[in-house]
Nucleic acid binder design. Structure first.
Length: 646
RNA sequence: GGCGGCGUAGCUCAGUUGGUUAGAGCGAACGGUUCAUACCCGUUAGGUCAACAGUUCAAAUCUGUUCGCCGCUACCA
């Protein structure tokens, strides 16, 4: 059996809904799948849902439902929504399915038998929200780096010896330039690995939900370890036949889950088991809403289906075309290297300019002319050289773009043919040829139709329904074979063309004063940064705001270096009747002895934080020296113990 | 703090291994055309290619420094 072209998206957590961000990933995968199918590859496009986390169980309980019923319900919703965007996956895997359980357990067993798994005690912080373990020092203000609540867990668990795979992983990345795309992400991954990989805890106490560790029912497999295996589970591994699917040619994802999971943990797991690695991991960047990351809590989520629905209402295009328009927009701005910004205005502009004015109008005018000048049928004549070249150029640009998964460049290449066509029509002016009775007219008309036929093929992976409509107006069956794009045979002479019918009715964008319904609720607000240099004016705050900062005079009672640190010192500070432990990074300038007995100014209402695992319950005020060192502030003369400062 | 990236026309961005007058799209202005969804085509942007210094016969493209932004990472409070 021929190896299938295997494309994956991440499996989505059942507590989220598809928004324009997750749709972006899935769309990219769908465009890749449709393109490869046209190229003649047998494609296996996998997506699915991630259902095993502790969070899922808790969410189910909160909803008063049985976990299984809960995930059934939500997973179904997920599964149903993608076809609405014309996303055609071949398989939808759920991590609660028996096939997934079986593969995960086998995976675990093999790693164990090869000595890559050992048991130990895990003690640390666990973020249920993102199902991630954190070190003390990873925490920000007592929360995870993403701002989620964390809880302290201490339990006996199984650990995966990820550290053992660092060198092998680096070598693989080095030897396979397209293993991680884009380039900038690859560099990040490399430096991440070079810092040293830690072994990872891959199990948790069984909460009655999840995949039991083989041979130890008291534990379930850690959700990330479990989730990643879905890609292999869908191939049927370890049952025979999986080789026809695995390894994946491309795994699409957002950049957030590339470095820590897909580009380190996942390949290490595969290496441990002895399976080949995916050919390419693509970690695309974000689509920002008015400059901010898409986030439900910020209320700036734009659901792609709503966007399409609204477009259909405003423009009068069909629902199918509106969905294609959303697909086109997402594909055209798909951010690979850097983040891109979504705005309604840009969406509207792209609809009008690229789709209505360029593509739609080109088809319309070409058909109209065909009816007027050559009897409404595809002429039997030679295609002019410049048209042949333009088509070939666009096609090769498209192919080059897709070879690197630059879907945005592929979209641009497809539109390139249309742009050429409009110029060509103007240059050759068929209406003038008709008036003059020029014999070149059939050739010119055929050249125009050739461009349209090619455009139909090129846009098909991105806009399948629109491509169908173009084909239909040309009186032809859909062009689904990539190799026939630009081929003479794709445009049989004598075929009757249909009367043109606008596919993309123009949006009227003249009424600018009306506020847009879908405008992001929040506009970009630059993060205020403290003014550090005298010539830089400070951001003004009110006296009330300043009063929020509680400063007091304290006295250092004890001081000792923080173990394992060369900058931090742990202080016991007496502030009146209060006593605090404060960690300060001032060892460069002060020894412990220097500090004991000294009066200091302390910010007493700063949120406690852990530094190098040691809690700090305040901050010492210090001037910053020219070399970045600290100069402690001290009352000009002895101040009363615990005196306020303002 | 460390590592990496970025800073190019009003806006969004391209700019291969350094080489004649620095490009595209959008917006704007002007002109042309009439087949077409008032569309399309052309011309126009006088951009110190963030700043400064250096290497070179020659730099947006290499080196250094500074400023600003972003990402990753950390013993930043």
């Amino acid at each position: 059996m021929a190896k299938k072209y295997f494309i994956t998206t991440p499996i989505y957590y059942v507590n989220s809904v598809p928004h324009i961000g997750t749709a972006l990933t899935t769309l990219a995968a769908d465009v890749t799948a449709r393109y490869q199918k046209m190229r003649g590859r047998e494609v296996f496009f996998l997506t699915g849902t991630d259902e095993n986390g502790t969070k899922v169980k808790e969410a189910a309980e909160k909803a008063g439902k049985d976990p299984m019923a809960f995930v059934d319900e939500i997973s179904a919703k997920f599964r149903e929504i993608w076809p609405g965007l014309y996303i055609e996956f071949d398989d939808f895997i759920r991590t609660t399915e028996p096939r997934h359980f079986a593969t995960v357990q086998e995976f675990f067993r093999i790693l164990q038998s090869k000595g890559h798994i050992y048991s130990g005690t895990y003690e640390g912080w666990y973020d249920v929200g993102s199902e991630t373990f954190f070190k003390e020092t990873d925490l920000v203000d007592g929360k995870s780096p993403d701002g989620n609540e964390v809880r302290w867990v201490k339990e006996d668990n199984y650990f995966f010896r990820m550290s053992a795979f660092a060198d092998q992983l680096l070598a693989h990345i080095e030897a396979n330039p397209k293993f991680i795309l884009p380039e900038s992400r690859k560099n990040e991954v490399v430096s991440f690995i070079k810092q040293g990989l830690r072994d990872v805890c891959i199990s948790r106490t069984n909460p009655g939900w999840g995949i039991p560790v083989p041979g130890d029912e008291s534990q379930v497999v850690y959700v990330w370890f479990d989730a990643l295996i879905n890609y292999v589970a869908a191939t049927g591994w370890p049952k025979p036949g999986w080789e026809a699917y695995w390894p994946a040619e491309v795994e699409w994802m957002g950049k957030d889950i590339l470095t820590r999971f897909h580009a380190t943990l996942w390949p290490a797991m595969l290496m441990g088991v002895g399976l080949p690695l995916p050919e390419t991991l693509v970690g695309h960047s974000w689509l920002l809403m008015g400059g901010e990351k898409i986030s439900k809590s910020k209320g700036n989520v734009v659901a792609p289906l709503d966007l399409a629905k609204e477009l259909a209402e405003r423009s009068g295009c069909s629902d199918a075309v509106a969905i294609d328009a959303v697909r086109y927009y997402m594909a055209a701005i798909l951010p690979i290297e850097t983040d891109a910004v979504f705005t309604n205005d840009e969406f509207d502009r792209k609809y009008n300019n690229d789709l209505a004015n360029d593509l739609g109008n080109a088809l319309n005018r070409s058909l109209a002319m065909s009816h007027k000048f050559v009897g409404g049928a595809i002429p039997d004549a030679a295609v002019e050289a410049q048209a042949v070249e333009a088509v070939a150029l666009a096609k090769s640009r498209y192919e080059a773009a897709m070879a690197d998964f630059r879907v945005n460049d592929a979209a641009d290449a497809a539109l390139g043919v249309v742009r050429f066509l409009n110029k060509y029509i103007d240059t050759r002016a068929p209406w003038a040829l008709a008036k003059a009775g020029d014999p070149a007219l059939p050739s010119v008309m055929r050249s125009m139709l050739t461009c349209l036929r090619a455009a139909e093929g090129l846009i098909r992976p991105i806009m399948p329904k629109t491509a169908d409509e173009v084909a239909s107006q040309l009186g032809l069956p859909a062009l689904t074979d990539w190799d026939r794009i630009g081929d003479e045979s794709s445009l049989p002479a004598g075929v009757a063309l249909l009367q043109p019918k606008p596919i993309f009715p123009r949006l009227d964008l003249t009424k600018k004063d009306e506020p847009k319904k879908m405008e992001p609720t929040k506009t970009q607000t630059p993060t205020p940064k403290p003014a550090l240099t005298p010539d830089e004016p400070a951001i003004e705050i009110s006296i009330e705001e300043f009063a929020k900062v509680k400063l007091k005079v304290g006295r250092v009672l004890e001081a000792e270096p923080v173990e394992g640190s060369d900058k931090l010192v742990k202080l016991q500070v007496v502030i009146g009747s209060d006593r605090r432990q404060i960690v300060a990074g001032i060892r460069k300038n002060y020894t412990a002895e220097d500090l004991i007995g000294r009066q200091v100014i302390v910010c007493v209402n700063l949120k406690p934080a852990k530094l190098r695992g040691v809690e700090s319950q305040g901050m010492l005020l210090a001037a910053i020296d020219t070399d970045g060192g600290a100069i402690l502030l001290q009352p000009e003369r002895e101040a009363p113990e615990g005196a306020g400062v303002r």
